[in-house]
C-alpha cells in the first residue's frame, strides 16, 4: 500500500544521508585552531553577557501568539483542503457549511485583530 511512497522515502534517505554525512565530517576535514573567544556566543565583539542555559532564555510573547494563531489557521486549512477537493460534489450544503466554518473562524479572527493580537510594535 505504501508503494507509491517509495521514491519519496528514497529521496528522503538520500538527502538525509548527504546531510548527515556532511554534518558529521565537517569537524574532521577542517582545520582545528580553537581559542576561547571563538567558542563564545557571538555578541558583536563585546564580552558576551551572561545567558541562561539554552532554551531557558526569554522569548517575546508575541511569538507565542503568532504560533497559536498559526496552529488555528493551519488546522482550518486541514478542513479546507478536503472540502476543496470535493467541493463540486458537496453542492450547496457544502458551500453553506464551509461558509459557516470560515465565518466562525472569522469571528475569532476579528476578535484577535480588534484586540491587537496581530500588532507588532
Amino acid at each position: 500500500m505504501l508503494q507509491p511512497y517509495l521514491p519519496l522515502v528514497l529521496m528522503f534517505a538520500l538527502a538525509a544521508a548527504f546531510a548527515l554525512f556532511s554534518a558529521t565530517i565537517a569537524p574532521y576535514i577542517g582545520p582545528r585552531r580553537y581559542n576561547r573567544a571563538k567558542m563564545d556566543a557571538y555578541e558583536c565583539g563585546i564580552e558576551p553577557s551572561p545567558q541562561p542555559v539554552v532554551g531557558g532564555g526569554r522569548m517575546p510573547i508575541a511569538y507565542y501568539l503568532t504560533a497559536m494563531l498559526f496552529i488555528l489557521f493551519d488546522i482550518e486549512m486541514v478542513f479546507l483542503y478536503p472540502f476543496a477537493v470535493s467541493a463540486d460534489r458537496l453542492g450547496l450544503f457544502g458551500l453553506v457549511e464551509i461558509a459557516l466554518f470560515v465565518g466562525t473562524l472569522g469571528f475569532a479572527y476579528a476578535y484577535v485583530w480588534r484586540r491587537g493580537g496581530l500588532d507588532w510594535n
Binding site: R36, A37, E43, C44, G45, E47, Q51
Partner: peptide, 19 residues
C-alpha cells in the same frame, strides 16, 4: 556561561574580534 578564568579586561578586545 562558564568562561575559563582569565583577566577579563585583557582578553576582551582580542577575544571578541575574531568571531
Amino acid at each position: 556561561a562558564e568562561l575559563p578564568d582569565g583577566s577579563p579586561a585583557g582578553s576582551n578586545g582580542s577575544a571578541a574580534k575574531e568571531p
